[in-house]
Computed example of a mutant assay.
Amino acid sequence: MEFNETKNIFLQIRDWVADQILQGKIVAGEKVPSVRELAVDMEVNRNTVMRSYSLMEEEGIIENKRGIGFFVAADAKRNLLKMQKQTFLKDELPSILHQIEVLKLNSEDLQILIQTIQSNDHANQ
């Protein structure tokens, strides 16, 4: 994994695991890689991975089954979707809307995006 210098590594690891859950690559009840395994795979200190896992445990994304390991929580995907939608609407969408305004984009310019969103809506139904 290529780490971004502008964001803490433990947060990037958390985001990577969250993305794996949202994409269905790791599902509810499934064991996530051990702290040691993930540290080796990502070439980071085990304490960094443990910090990521502790944060995800606090957020209700994973749960620790002592002596067995960390597992994806039953409602992890739902919680992640809710958290990430809130973050997007609060932090990212205002910047996008500002760019639309500055670039004077109109509905015709955005039609491809609108069609993509509508296609995703139909695919998810």
Rank of each mutant, 00 (worst) to 15 (best):
I117Q: 09
K85P: 00
Q20N: 14
E63V: 04
E92F: 15
V32R: 07
L113N: 11
M1H: 10
N120M: 14
L105T: 07
E2A: 10
D41W: 03
F71C: 03
P33F: 02
A28R: 12
E59Y: 09
A74I: 02
N124Y: 03
R51K: 14
I117A: 15
I62D: 14
I9Y: 04
K7M: 12
G29Q: 08
L103W: 08
S107W: 03
N47V: 11
N47I: 12
M83H: 02
N45P: 02
R46L: 00
V32T: 04
I62P: 04
T116Q: 09
S119G: 08
G29C: 03
I100D: 13
K77G: 07
K65F: 05
M83P: 00
L110K: 01
I117S: 11
S54L: 10
Q115H: 09
N4F: 14
E30D: 06
R78M: 04
V40G: 04
K65R: 13
N45D: 15
F88R: 00
K25W: 08
L81Y: 01
E5R: 02
G24A: 02
I114L: 11
E30T: 02
I96M: 14
G29N: 07
A123S: 10
K7G: 01
L89G: 02
D19P: 00
G67N: 09
E92P: 00
I21L: 07
N47C: 03
